[in-house]
Design a protein around this nucleic acid. Structure first.
Length: 419
RNA sequence: GUGGGUGUAGCUCAGCUGGCAGAGCACCUGACUGUGGCUCAGGUUGUCGUGGGUUCAAAUCCCAUCACCCACCCCA
């Protein structure tokens, strides 16, 4: 037999961890519904040009990390993110002509061809939202609020929201020029990567991890002077809106995003408990992406949360029971009957199970407990002759004999009250 | 792509200067012949990552290789 190994950068989830993933999804769906976002489902296979055009020319590495199906299909890849895909769909179906505003959420796998490390997989899952069609700072505020709510409602406490504004295209260029100008004299003090970045992805110098670069960056005293009046107003208003929504935030003037498409608002949700990959979610405004992909100029904003990273921050949940009721039997003579009882319970949507291995009653009880059953229904050879069944309440360690026709009521009453 | 670390039972790991492959947890059985948790007794589980070398003898030393982890990088 071949030695099957887990594919690099993938992760398997078994119970009970897999249940946490599900509850995460449930929480997100609940909150999206409250905020009137509807689910969009896009294919995992996508035209790679959607991403190579949308994500930027300066970020060449992005191109390298795209999972391609080449040579099977020349321009098909496994999607690396949801935003560009959403933007593409707005254009290709002319949806913007039917609706002025599109509020979408999506949950699903994304792929990147990176070397895995803590919090970084090749196949991972995003919970994302896109608000397309409004340039209002209230849209930004709403998105940040939703992201924050999904985290807190999932029981995650250790996170902080950092926001910044890159301004419009002109402002971004102005910021780059300021950096180039101020750093030209200090070029030799920068790390080799940042020296390279001076030519290309200049803004990335701002969040370089190298201590030397950090010191230089902080000595530059970057402020929002590069923002034009309207971008400045947008940012200030967003801050007020977040305060009104009671969403705590901090302004991080050196927060930048790696991708080209961001304009004005950018934000990142960080946690110190994640390791080097400390962002549990990120997003921002992308007013020009749809245009760059060949559509009209439609303002939009969005975010994505990393589900696996969220899972690392979530409190460990109690194992949810695999079955609420377990049917035990005293001898093989009554197994048929026991299975009939099991079927009856299941017909009434009661989560239930039975032994399939011919185990001793003692072992069955043990198994019942392991499953987390609240009730064990005991089918005894002696009792069954008089139409009686034993119902045992596991937690209370109490049991009583009832008539067969009382079973459903007894079980339902108990489960309603205590389980 | 670059660097560091780790690979021994299902899980967490111990195993020194080479000398019979170990512990805890988990799992199974019994004490308790029809009743879970606690206790006690017993039991199952291994290509010591893989390939080669040194040696009378290798989990242990050497070389190679693979995998995973962490970090750089990058960040959706």
């Amino acid at each position: 037999m071949p030695d099957f190994k887990l594919v690099k950068g993938t992760k398997e989830y078994f119970p009970p961890e897999s249940a946490a993933l599900y509850s995460l999804e449930k929480t997100a769906r609940r909150i999206f519904k409250i905020f009137a976002y509807q689910e969009a489902r896009f294919p995992i296979l996508e035209d790679s040009r959607v991403f190579s055009r949308g994500l930027g020319k300066e970020t060449e590495i992005v191109e390298k990390q795209i999972y391609r199906l080449y040579p099977l299909e020349k321009n098909i890849c496994l999607r690396p993110e949801g935003t560009a895909q959403a933007a593409k769909n707005v254009i290709s179906h002319n949806i913007y002509r039917q609706k002025e505003i599109m509020k979408w959420f999506y949950i699903g796998p994304m792929f990147r061809g990176e070397r895995p490390q803590k919090g970084r997989l090749r196949e991972f899952s995003h919970i994302g939202a896109e608000f397309i069609g409004a340039g209002s700072y209230w849209a930004d505020a709403e998105l940040i609020k939703i992201a924050s709510l999904i985290l807190s409602e999932s029981g995650i406490k250790d996170y902080s929201i950092e926001i910044n504004s890159l301004g419009c295209v002109k402002d971004k260029q102005a910021l780059k020029n300021i950096l180039k100008e101020k750093l030209s004299s200090k070029k030799n003090l920068l790390c080799p990567n940042c020296r390279q970045r001076l030519q290309g992805n200049t803004l990335r110098i701002l969040d370089c991890k190298n201590p030397g670069c950090r010191e230089i960056v902080s000595s530059l005293k970057i402020n929002h002077s590069y923002l034009c009046t309207s971008c400045r107003q947008h940012f200030d208003s967003l801050c007020r809106a977040l305060e009104q929504l009671k969403t705590p935030y901090t302004i991080n003037p050196v927060l930048v995003r790696g991708l080209d498409y961001y304009t004005q608002t950018v934000f990142e949700i960080k946690s110190s408990k994640l390791g080097a990959q400390d962002a549990v979610g990120a997003g921002g405004r992308y007013n020009n992406l749809i245009q760059e992909l060949g559509g009209p100029q439609i303002p939009a904003a969005g975010f994505a949360l990393g589900m696996e990273r969220m899972l690392m921050l979530m409190p460990v949940k109690k194992i949810s029971p695999a079955a609420k009721v377990f049917v035990a039997y005293t001898s093989k003579n009554v197994y048929n009957y026991a299975f009939e009882i099991l079927t009856l319970l299941r017909q009434h949507s009661i989560s239930s199970d039975i032994d399939f291995l011919g185990k001793s009653l003692k072992a069955q009880l043990k198994y019942s407990q392991k499953l987390g059953a609240r009730i064990t229904v005991l089918i005894g050879d002696d009792e069954i002759k008089q139409g009686k069944i034993i119902v045992k309440f596991m937690k209370e360690s109490l049991q009583k004999q009832i008539n067969e026709d009382e079973l459903l009521d007894t079980v339902n009453n108990y489960l309603e009250k205590y389980a």
